[in-house]
Nucleic acid binder design. Structure first.
Lengths: 134, 134
DNA sequence: CATATACTTAGCTCATTGGTTAAATAACCT
DNA sequence: AGGTTATTTAACCAATGAGCTAAGTATATG
């Protein structure tokens, strides 16, 4: 039943209420009451959302008297970011420039190793897509 | 009933099959049949997954005879990345260093404008959290 | 035209999810 | 102890989502 971590993190992020809660928490640690205020929703509903966020590793909760202060937990964010990294080249221009540079360097390295197999670097039909890094 | 774009994108990403499909597509455009191969799952199931990915803006589909080739669509990835950007400071050290630098620059700017209000830059209780950028 | 290939749509199940209200727990404050 | 405040748990409901099989559509080919 338990989804893999990345799935439950993405699932947790797929709700506007939860994203709003995270946005609020980005401003600093706060209580459940405080978090609930902006929403036209019962407290138990918020409590559930927080549980989802916690189990997704996106927040952590402390205890301070009758309050359970919530704060952002970096780890899952980081994982999402690094998963997203696999696709960065599809939209990030500066990343692509770096990518191109690395390719060049590799090509040069290869040239040094066997100067013969130089030439025809570009594949034809798949116009620039369809290559892997590394 | 249609979720906001970010929500449907995150929802689409919250499934390992769909993420695997995207990973395959990162290697290049391909057909539904080809995409379905690695999975122990009916073709209609894959077809549904593709529809979800398409409506989430994560892929786009062409037509070529009886094939519907799929490819990565950058826009939604970009949106996810930029949403994630709001939280980058929580885990990305280099981002934090940049952040610190910007704060310093702003402080200096402020000092120039009114040299009087210099001093007590750091807030106390919220130990480095709890400040907004900009 | 008939058949094969590549999908998609329809209709069905079953599990999960987001919300509700009512009741329980926990810690503080007379 | 008894009350108030903060938060969670339980029990329920309606809607969504992922899977299936069977049937439909579209294009190529014999």
């Amino acid at each position: 039943m338990p989804l893999d971590p990345l799935s439950s993190t993405f699932a947790a992020l797929a709700d506007p209420t939860r994203r709003a809660i995270l946005a609020r928490l980005a401003l600093g640690e706060t209580s459940v009451m405080e978090l609930a205020k902006p929403f036209d929703m019962s407290l138990p509903a918020i409590s559930k959302h927080l549980k989802v966020l916690e189990r997704a590793g996106l927040i952590s909760r402390g205890r301070e008297a009758q309050w359970r202060p919530c704060r952002i937990a970096p780890a899952s964010f980081k994982q999402v970011d690094s998963w997203l990294g696999n696709f960065r080249r599809f939209w990030d221009e500066s990343f692509n420039r770096l990518d191109g540079l690395l390719e060049e360097m590799k090509a040069e390295e290869a040239a040094k190793a066997s100067p013969r197999s130089q030439r025809k670097v570009r594949v034809k039909k798949e116009k620039q897509r369809g290559r892997t890094r590394e």
